[in-house]
Amino acid sequence: MSGMSIKKRKKMKGSRVVLYLALIVGALISLVPFYWLIRSAFMNMLEIYILPPLWWSREPSFDNFKTVFFADIPFFSYFLNTIKIVIPVVFGTVVSSSVAAYGFARFDFPFKQGWFAICISSMLIPGAVTLIPGFLIWKRVNAINTYWPLILPCFFGGGAFNIFLFRQFFMTIPRDLDEAATLDGAGPLRIYWQILLPLLKPVCITVMLFTFMGTWNDFFGPMLYLYDMEKYTVALGLQLFSSSYGSDYGAVMAGALVMTIPTILIFFVGQKYFVQGIVTGSVKG
């Protein structure tokens, strides 16, 4: 300590101050839009349009949220609709991608590497190429305006990225475990279900969280395939809401807040898995 000159100590203190300042500026940039979202959601139509703008409502109320849930655009049923899609999608994605990864990681069959490469290559195809024919095929089988186009694909592979992720983790588990279980008379499905999957719980949770987020936030899919207002998801509902309540920004912000809250809750519950998933997905990939 005594070896350190006063000048150097001062300099270190200075850099600490700069560091904290930068952290606070970054935090403000991240948080201020949230503040504006919440502030507007609690304002009535008159307060929204006061100049200069108010920083907080003079009489904050939940009226906007009442509009969101109980006015002519039934957000509540959009929540239910979205859940009706989210649950099978999350289930189908986890089961189907982990089963495929199990097959690729643990079994040998002719042309395995080729099949794997084919399955993974679908990651590289931009949506723009498959979009129109995909739509036309669903139209041909009369599945437009149903949830099938949004749900069924998840049961066939569950996405190239997830197969890849699961396979990476399957390969970290020693094969001795499978062999021991085989000697004890367990079949492949039992090994998958009772031995390997419990060991992969963290990956399962990661995939489930990302799938939930992706489905909850998806706008393009539902917009393409759902026509009837009663079938809308929250994302579509919010878009409809913002175009029909365009000038009532308080209500629109309340709607945006309502749509965002579940994702924030899920994030706080599974923060650890999120970070893990983002990092393994990018660094190992």
Partner: peptide, 11 residues
């Protein structure tokens, strides 16, 4: 093994 990856290939 092939049966396990069939859904993904079909997909």
């Amino acid at each position: 093994g092939f049966a396990l990856v069939t859904p993904a290939i079909l997909g």
